[in-house]
Simulated scan of single mutants.
Amino acid sequence: MAMSGAGGTPGGIGEFLLGFVLAVAGGWLLMNQVVVSGGHWNLWGYNSFGLSLAPFVIGVAMLFFNGKSVVGWLLLIGGLVIVIAGVIANLQIYFRPTSLFQTLLMLVMLFGGIGLLARSLRAAGPAR
């Protein structure tokens, strides 16, 4: 059996590893600059997180009574979607102040690494 390159293609393994390291390092540095905090679940000035759990709790109760209840499954799944959407909608995401050079360096590492990964996995063929 002949040994092939990255992904079974004749691409270079060294190029693949360099691209992987660059993409991981650039992604980590970029995500390290992001601050995520939670917001408040307010509905007309009141905390509404408990209200968003109502369909989920009712669905769980219905499924404990009858595990084949279609309405119970719909309430359970709908309640989970409401909770997950509410958590995502109430996130506050900030990019920490950083220099333009550092930001460009992070982006070049991330997307340059992704480009090297893609090029190493491409099957070698005639140049177009």
Rank of each mutant, 00 (worst) to 15 (best):
N47A: 10
V35Q: 08
N32S: 15
S52Y: 04
F49V: 08
L76M: 09
L74E: 15
L107T: 03
A61M: 12
V34F: 08
A118R: 13
G113C: 01
S69T: 13
Q92N: 06
I58P: 02
G19I: 06
F65Q: 10
A89E: 12
V60Q: 06
G45R: 06
L74F: 15
V87D: 07
L117H: 04
F49T: 03
N90Q: 10
G67S: 09
R96M: 13
A85W: 13
F56I: 04
G86I: 04
L51T: 10
E15K: 08
G112H: 00
G67L: 04
G5E: 01
G12M: 09
S48I: 02
A61N: 10
T98N: 07
G59V: 05
F56K: 03
W44D: 11
A118M: 07
M1L: 08
L74R: 14
G125L: 06
L29A: 14
S120P: 11
G79K: 07
L110E: 03
A6N: 05
L51Y: 11
I88V: 11
W44F: 13
G27S: 07
R128D: 07
I84S: 09
V60W: 06
A2R: 05
S48F: 15
M31R: 07
G5M: 00
N66Y: 08
F101H: 13
S99L: 05
V70H: 02
M109I: 00
V108R: 06
V71L: 15
A25D: 03
G45P: 04
P10H: 05
V87G: 11
R96N: 12
R128H: 06
G79S: 00
F65Y: 13
S48Y: 11
G113S: 08
G38W: 09
I82V: 15
V87M: 07
A123K: 15
G7D: 00
N32P: 01
P10L: 05
S37G: 09
F111G: 00
I93A: 11
F111I: 09
M106E: 12
N32I: 01
G67F: 02
L107W: 14
L80R: 03
W44P: 01
N32L: 09
G115N: 10
L110D: 01
A61D: 08
V81W: 00
P97E: 09
